[in-house]
């Protein structure tokens, strides 16, 4: 066991944990932030995507210890003041979610995508979603939501 510390959604977070604790376990079990989900065990579904120092990362494929000292942003911290982030709002407006389980990872991936790529088109959005699996929507409305948010945030 050793103590690790990081900043999560702008607040300091610290816990005494086993070295093998994954970042997603730290977030869900230690901090009780259960918006970040686990949908697979082969690092492919993307339900667990959070931002580490501003970049989208699969929190199921990172040890909590690797995030020592890092700034973590989870879905709960995306719109701290109650007003929705434009990507969250676009997912709602365009019905980009059904069961909601993949949604936090999708939204965190989309925010990162829009940050990196200024001129998104449909083909690029679809390629960029390679690491996020949704079983409900057929992606049609997710793609629409991301394109709309990208326009909105320009």
């Amino acid at each position: 066991m050793s103590v690790i510390s990081m900043t999560v959604n702008g607040k300091p977070a610290s816990a005494d944990i086993e070295a093998r604790t994954l970042l997603v376990q730290f977030i869900r079990e230690q901090l009780g932030l259960t918006g970040t989900h686990v949908g697979c065990d082969t690092s492919q579904c993307g339900a667990c995507v959070v931002h580490v120092d501003g970049r989208a990362v699969k929190s199921c494929t990172m040890l909590a210890a690797q995030a020592e000292g890092a700034e973590i942003l989870t879905i709960e911290g995306l719109a701290p003041n109650g007003e929705l982030h434009p990507v969250q709002a676009a997912f709602r407006e365009h019905h980009g979610l059904q069961c909601g389980f993949c949604t936090p990872g999708m939204i965190m991936t989309a925010v990162d995508m829009i940050r990196r790529i200024p001129d998104l088109d449909e083909e690029t959005v679809r390629e960029e979603l390679e690491g996020n699996i949704c079983r409900c929507t057929g992606y049609h409305n997710i793609v629409k939501a991301i394109l709309a948010a990208s326009q909105e945030m320009r």
Partner: peptide
């Protein structure tokens, strides 16, 4: 939608 897009859903796990 609000609870799902803000990470406030309650799934069994």
């Amino acid at each position: 939608d609000f609870r799902f897009i803000t990470g406030n859903g309650h799934y069994t796990d």
